[in-house]
Simulated assay, not measured.
Amino acid sequence: MTDLSPSEDIGGALIARLAARVAEARKLRGLSRRVLSEMSGVSPRYLAQLEAGEGNISVLLLQRVASALDLQIEALLAEGMPMDHEAERITTLFRQAPPQVQQQVCGLLAPQNPKVMRAGRICLIGLRGAGKSTLGRMAGEALGIPFVELNHDIEADTDMPLAEVMAFYGEDGYRKLEAEALERASAKHDKMILAVAGGIVAQPDTYARLLERFHTVWIKTSPAEHMQRVRGQGDLRPMEGNPAAMAHLKTLLESRIPLYQKAEAQVNTTNRAVRSSANDLLAVIAKHRFLDGAK
Rank of each mutant, 00 (worst) to 15 (best):
T2E: 09
P6N: 14
E8V: 10
D9W: 12
D9I: 15
G11D: 09
G12A: 10
A13I: 04
L14A: 13
L18K: 00
R21W: 09
A23G: 01
K27V: 12
L31P: 00
L36S: 03
L36Q: 03
S37D: 03
S40C: 00
R45T: 14
Y46H: 15
L50K: 04
L50M: 01
G53L: 07
E54A: 02
G55R: 03
N56Y: 03
S58N: 13
A66N: 02
A68C: 07
I73D: 01
M81H: 05
M81N: 11
P82S: 15
D84L: 05
E86W: 02
E86M: 01
A87D: 04
A87Y: 00
L93Y: 02
F94V: 10
F94H: 08
Q96W: 01
A97V: 08
Q103P: 01
C106R: 11
G107H: 09
L108E: 08
L109H: 08
P111T: 12
P111F: 14
N113H: 07
N113V: 10
N113A: 10
P114G: 05
M117W: 11
R118S: 06
A119S: 07
C123T: 04
C123R: 02
I125M: 10
L127D: 03
G129A: 11
L135V: 04
G140C: 12
G144L: 13
I145L: 14
L150P: 06
H152Y: 08
I154P: 00
I154Q: 09
A156Y: 12
D159Q: 15
E164V: 12
V165K: 02
A167S: 14
E171L: 12
D172H: 11
Y174Q: 03
Y174P: 00
K176Q: 10
E180C: 06
A181P: 00
L182Y: 01
R184E: 12
A185D: 00
H189Q: 04
M192V: 07
A195G: 15
A195L: 11
V196K: 00
G199I: 04
V201R: 02
A202V: 14
P204H: 06
D205L: 06
D205N: 13
D205K: 13
D205H: 12
R209C: 04
L210W: 02
F214W: 11
H215D: 05
T216A: 07
I219T: 06
I219A: 07
S222C: 06
P223N: 03
P223K: 03
E225Q: 11
M227L: 15
V230P: 06
D235F: 05
E240T: 10
G241F: 02
A245E: 06
A245G: 07
M246I: 12
A247S: 12
H248L: 05
L253M: 15
E254A: 15
I257D: 13
P258C: 13
L259D: 13
L259S: 11
Q261F: 11
A265N: 13
A265E: 10
V267P: 01
R272D: 03
V274P: 05
S277H: 08
A286K: 15
H288G: 13
L291K: 01
G293K: 14
G293M: 15
A294T: 11
K295M: 04
K295E: 06
